[in-house]
């Protein structure tokens, strides 16, 4: 069992938990993820490592409930435990590896974070800051109250640009607009970009950075089962090669990814998962007949 030392809300429906997992905390690096299983009957849910404390032996995760499993996570309180918590999985971000430091120092780096994807960007920016590199960061959110970690970023990054879809805070519009403005009218140049967020956002970031020839890394979040390279569920097309995101990634060259195929694959279990959520929300009060839940079969 893996004890939840702290559970709370970061903003809106974005949750943060600090979990005791000494083996993971000892070894993880920014860019890696864990797989969390809540209880005996739970799914294996991949979540990016958003912060870690090697001394305390803890890992911070941040998530947004979108389906039955992540919604069940929100029931857990400080002092409860996850049944399973395994990691670190995947490869660390190439930017955050000591042996690449020389190269990384020469680059002007831009991070683009979208929604709950803001959280996994943080350890990368922090790691670079601790190694004397200050990267620029764009944070995009739907609306003001969903902007997370602003203060923490402020302390570790170069320029911080915040934008909201509805213009309620910071700049107004999508993150792609900010990228355009920075490089076309605000005189910025970047030689490396990292975009993390919903697939659709990463797709459009890549289309934008491609125009300006800025190499771009994205963190793919396909459906996963084991996370060890055993099942092949997480395969994504990178160029004309099949890659397994859990062992070859999760970070890949965004300009080589087939996002449209990846997004369709991600929706593979949509009907089944929809039913599961309905069942969870309505519990015993729902007895089929709605045509959606399959409860009448």
């Amino acid at each position: 069992m893996y004890k939840i030392l702290k559970a709370g809300k970061l903003a809106g429906n974005i949750y943060e938990m600090v979990v005791e997992a000494p083996r993971v905390a000892k070894h993880c690096l920014p860019g890696q993820f864990v797989i969390v299983k809540m209880d005996e009957v739970g799914e294996r849910i991949p979540l990016t490592i958003c912060d870690y404390d090697r001394e305390a032996g803890t890992i911070t995760i941040v998530f947004q409930p979108i389906g039955a499993s992540t919604e069940k996570f929100t029931y857990l309180k400080t002092g409860d435990s996850f049944r399973d918590f395994v990691g670190p999985l995947g490869r660390p971000s190439e930017l955050c590896e000591e042996e690449n430091l020389e190269e990384t120092r020469k680059k002007k780096i831009l991070f683009v974070a979208g929604g709950v994807g803001t959280a996994p960007v943080y350890p990368q920016v922090k790691w670079l800051h601790e190694h004397g590199i200050d990267a620029d960061v764009i944070i995009g959110a739907k609306t003001k109250e969903l902007v997370i970690l602003e203060d923490k970023f402020q302390a570790v990054c170069g320029n911080l640009y915040i934008t909201t879809d509805d213009g309620s805070y910071g700049r107004s519009g999508m993150v792609t607009k900010v990228i355009e403005d920075l490089v076309t009218t605000e005189g910025k140049t970047y030689d490396h970009c990292v975009a993390i967020g919903p697939m659709i956002m990463m797709k459009f970031c890549c289309l934008t950075t491609k125009k300006y020839n800025i190499p771009t890394i994205v963190s793919m979040n396909p459906i996963m089962v084991d996370g060890t390279g055993m099942c092949g569920a997480c395969r994504v097309m990178v160029g004309d090669e099949v890659k397994f995101a859990c062992v070859d990634g999760p970070e890949f060259d965004g300009h080589a990814i087939d996002f449209d195929a990846a997004m369709k694959r991600q929706a593979m279990y949509k009907t089944e998962e929809g039913r599961a959520l309905l069942k969870l929300r309505e519990g015993d009060t729902h007895h089929g007949g709605c045509g959606n839940c399959g409860g009448d079969k």
């Binding site: 099942c231 395969r235 099949v242 397994f244 694959r265």
Partner: peptide, 23 residues
């Protein structure tokens, strides 16, 4: 790791490795 054939359509929805399906 499971092997795939490398034929067109293999990343489509509804194509699984036996390992995934059985797991």
């Amino acid at each position: 790791l499971p092997m795939f054939m490398g034929i067109p359509g293999e990343t489509a929805k509804g194509v699984f490795s036996a390992n995934e399906y059985l797991t």
